[in-house]
Design a protein around this nucleic acid. Structure first.
Lengths: 335, 335
DNA sequence: CTGAAAGCGCTTACAG
DNA sequence: CTGAAAGCGCTTACAG
């Protein structure tokens, strides 16, 4: 920096000002400094800058999952999950124009401690937190830290924190409506885990709507949001209720598994039984027949999370707020 | 830090020493300082530390892809690709014990400039670089930067840089051998893109081995490593060469697509035609029938990349080296 | 083994 | 609009 200042014949303060785009710099001087920067190939040291600005220009994406025995497969599951992939893509696209980088931190309760320490050390200016399971203590810990944070989906505990969500109940209702419209009369559902809000909300949204439409009972079975789980849940459900002709599956991955089971069972989709998924992830296009599903605009939601987080970082006093996206039905072949 | 020093009745230098585990500190003093740290809830400021140590304790994972028109789908493709997911998982698991964090940076040539600037600014201590396409100038740029770097797979250009790879040719040979062993006599292959080493090596490895085994020609068609690409390539290949009874597909994703085409065409797998994939990614288990495939230990390779990178960071003078993993055949149902 | 002091490379009131 | 100077919060030779 001294070199640049000398080359341009100004002080380091002025060099700093042109680098940071201070409006007060004389145009000619600005130009000279810029030339000097180009000539010397000078690049500011970010650590020194962070030390005084108290900004790191990066944020953490913390993905908090329930504990599982095998840690290796834990990382694997996270990094190959299409939902998390879409979140990462959406957040990256919103952050990039602001030159803010993303540090991805997968965690389960065994290393909450390390994550909290990382956040406290000032590595990042804020955190995007994905936490779905009910017992997770991380949202509260992050909240208590006082670091700017935005959570994906409504937190299970009532914490004063900003979050972004999709209208889960409405999505489930869209699925029910469509199944009814195409003439299905015996409806059922494979739900997500019922200890997380999205699992519960989709089940309740589906049931409540059908109740209003005169259904007295709607068979359901709890799934785990995995393909394999969808396969076995469908098998069990169909065994207990062979007459089902319309099925809402709470995410696309499970729907893909269910479709496989139906094929094995010789049920034609959608003729014998119509199937609607949830997410509109890439898995929906991997299904045969192509999956009709409730679209959740995950990328846009993640981008919004990033925007809200940047707003919190810029104005620390900002009150928490939630933004809810509308789901939409994407009709393809399965229903 | 001053608070801690005061509380413990020592100098800041001593506090710093116990935090950094300097061996020279008296046990009693160490204990007092640790108690003071716990009492005050002190957490070191990383920017200040980085400023003097010149270490950031984080590394970048740069994923460099060919240019595509739609940038949004670009991020999406990257973050939902199982190969990149496995890389991220493997690198994370190796880095985590050393408390080194990973900043994931997807890029195409439109923002090479920003990536280079990011690396120069000292945000990270080193870079893990995934770059597969031949025209990519990023590996050379990173090399010229002089920052510690490890590349996944042999670079297309002869650059003096450390890399980690799997023995691609051997993998293809394993596939050929197995197809021959099970009695296939009319062999073909769907290759990867031929402008990237892994695509070319797998094709050549397959062909060369079959040549040695007396085959005069082996039909092949160039694919693009995507599921859809595998579907159409298989259709084209089978139309031109209906007698094929053994097919090596250069990655699992394309194999999944090919399997679909074969099902559409009414060819039984493996009875009419045996199929072997490459990767042993999660896609192999999504196939019906389950895919027989050449396993590439991607997680372990990524972990090794991280280890080699850390070694380079620790000893800047270290000469570049390459490490090659052995592939293995995983026999399931498709061949 | 410990402390006083210098220094890492920036930014930003404060004067002028 | 610009510069001199203080200061951000650490680590690390250098003495002792």
């Amino acid at each position: 920096m001294d070199q640049v200042a000398e080359a341009a014949g100004v002080s380091r303060a002025t060099v700093s000002r042109v680098i940071n785009g201070a409006p007060s710099v004389d145009a000619k001087i600005r130009e000279m400094v810029q030339r000097a920067i180009a000539d010397t190939g000078y690049v500011p040291n970010v650590a020194a800058r962070s030390l005084v600005t108290r900004r790191s220009n990066s944020v953490a994406l913390v993905i908090s999952e329930p504990d599982r025995p095998d840690n290796n497969s834990f990382l694997n599951r996270i990094f190959t999950d299409p939902y998390f992939g879409r979140i990462t893509a959406g957040a990256t696209s919103a952050l990039r124009p602001h030159d803010i980088h993303l540090v991805v931190i997968p965690t389960d309760s065994t290393d909450h401690h390390q994550v909290v320490r990382y956040l406290r050390q000032g590595h990042v200016d804020g955190v995007l937190l994905i936490s779905s399971h009910e017992q997770d203590t991380l949202p509260r810990q992050v909240h208590d830290l006082g670091i700017p944070a935005v959570v994906a989906a409504r937190p299970t505990a009532p914490i004063a924190v900003s979050y972004v969500d999709v209208d889960q109940r409405l999505g489930a209702q869209l699925a029910a409506e469509h199944l009814l419209d195409r003439g299905c009369r015996t409806l059922a559902t494979i739900s997500g885990p019922l200890d997380i809000p999205s699992g519960l909300d989709r089940l309740n949204g589906y049931r409540d709507y059908l109740t209003r439409r005169g259904f007295s009972s709607v068979p359901s079975i709890e799934g785990d949001f995995t393909r394999a789980g969808g396969e076995s849940a469908a098998r069990e459900l169909l065994a207990a209720h062979p007459a089902i002709d319309g099925l809402f599956v709470a995410n696309d991955l499970m729907a893909e598994g269910a479709l496989r089971t139906l094929q094995d069972l010789g049920r034609r989709v959608p003729d014998d039984i119509a199937v609607v998924g949830f997410d509109d992830s890439s898995a929906a296009l991997d299904c045969r027949p192509l999956l009709t599903t409730v679209r959740q605009p995950v990328e846009e939601m993640a981008a919004e999370m990033a925007e809200v987080l940047m707003a919190h970082i810029a104005s620390p006093g900002r009150l928490p707020r939630s933004v809810t996206f509308q789901p939409s039905l994407v009709i393809r072949e399965s229903a």
